[in-house]
Amino acid sequence: MKKIAVVGTVGIPACYGGFESLVENLTFYKSEEVTYTVFCSSKSYKSKLQEHNNAKLIYIPLNANGIQSVVYDIFSLFKCYFLKPDAILILGVSGCCFLPFLRLFSKAKVITNIDGLEWKRDKWGNFAKWFLKKSESIAVKNSDIVVTDNKAIEEYVDEEYGIRPVTIAYGGDHAIRNIKVQPSTDSYALGLCRIEPENNVEMILESFSKSEFNLKFIGNWNSSDFGIALKERYQKCHNIDLLDPIYDLNILYSIRKNCSVYLHGHSAGGTNPSLVEMMHFQVPILAYDCSFNRYSTDNMANYFSSSDDLIDIINSLDFDKLNANALSMFKIANEKYTWLNISEKYEQLF
């Protein structure tokens, strides 16, 4: 039996983002050949379980995100020395500056998922970008296996560092729920993401402000000056409904299930969890035109690269093409983006 320690997430039960959903489902679908120990942020859990999905949970009294994430990850890696796992699965590169020291006193194999070129994100300042790029370099050079979640990042790692990583995406079938949904009488497009510049939220809102097609957009509008400004500017548009984050999965499922088309504006990262989740709903995908999104959708979605592109698509919706798009997305999702398949691939690495 392989003992695996997981470092770099807020923790489980999943309550935050993509890496947390990954660990939630790795532990849920695990075979009898693997045991997991997952490091969790005590700051994020009022109720501190000892186990979840038969995984042992260890709490660190620090935030897993923001500036504290570096110390949080380093402290977790240090504690791995005493756990003596067979392998350490590191998710993200924040604390990987500690890896050269870890390798001096630990025999555990290191598998690092470097995430989606975090240092390129617009939200970081120059020092943070430099630090994350340096951490990425250290992670790649000091890991036994590097994991990427998208072929575009695989190619980047190969070209940048001369190392061929293993590409494993995310599952999305956990978003499908076994409940009946009352069909909507209205047609609407749906957007769902963190409200950040690289997700092209402004481009999408600007396009729909010039259209009569309805848009529901779910996001953390009040978490930044950028989001607040967008909300003030576009909430007055009669066809745009800006919704705060929805944590009730049944309500979210209903909104996703009833949408006519899904808008994916992410331009950074790799295989975005929100995209592969929506591919399981068999709805047409309009995605920002970048290599990450094209790889994720096998070049079979519809793509836009500007507000004008998106306006043209919206104003001349070809429902035969959109239906073909939806069927293709659903087929790809079931072939590539199911959690049982993803869990088996990670266990093969272990």
Rank of each mutant, 00 (worst) to 15 (best):
H238V: 06
K123Q: 10
K210I: 01
I12A: 02
Y72A: 07
I311E: 09
I218F: 04
D289F: 06
K134W: 13
R177C: 00
I179H: 12
A5I: 12
D241P: 06
A324D: 11
N325K: 08
I60C: 00
C96R: 05
I218C: 09
D244A: 15
L57I: 03
E32T: 11
T27C: 13
L132H: 06
L190A: 04
K180F: 13
H280M: 09
T27N: 01
H238D: 03
A14W: 03
A5Y: 10
D186A: 07
F127L: 14
F226S: 02
N142G: 02
Y59Q: 07
N258Y: 07
A287R: 12
W130G: 03
E20K: 05
A152V: 09
Y72H: 12
K107M: 08
D309E: 04
D320Q: 15
N341T: 08
H52K: 12
C80R: 08
D144H: 15
R103D: 00
F330D: 14
F82D: 00
Y337L: 02
N113P: 02
I255G: 12
A139F: 06
I111H: 12
M329Q: 13
Q68H: 15
K2M: 13
Y81E: 08
G227F: 01
C193G: 06
N199P: 07
L205Y: 02
H238T: 07
S224V: 03
Y346G: 01
V38T: 03
I285Y: 07
V147G: 04
F105Q: 05
K129W: 02
K79Y: 14
N258K: 13
K46E: 10
I246G: 06
N178T: 14
Y59C: 09
D144P: 12
K231G: 01
K236L: 05
K133Y: 13
D241F: 15
E206G: 02
K123V: 11
D173T: 09
C237W: 02
G11N: 00
A326S: 13
Q235S: 12
D173C: 06
I163Y: 06
S316A: 15
C97N: 03
Y59S: 05
E24P: 06
S209C: 08
L263N: 08
K257V: 00
L263W: 11
F208N: 07
E155A: 11
S207Q: 08
A5D: 07
C193A: 15
D86F: 14
L215W: 10
A152P: 11
H174A: 13
I342P: 04
S296A: 15
A175S: 14
I74C: 04
K123E: 02
S207P: 07
K84C: 09
D122T: 14
K48A: 00
D86E: 14
S274E: 04
I311H: 07
N239G: 01
L230S: 01
K123Y: 00
G8I: 12
L275P: 00
K345C: 02
D241S: 14
S76H: 03
I176A: 10
W119H: 15
M279E: 10
N220L: 04
M1W: 09
V7Y: 00
E20N: 03
N150T: 11
N272C: 03
V110L: 08
Q50S: 12
V261N: 06
S291P: 04
G11M: 00
G8L: 09
K46R: 14
E20T: 06
L89C: 04
L215D: 07
L22G: 01
K257S: 05
V93F: 00
S187T: 13
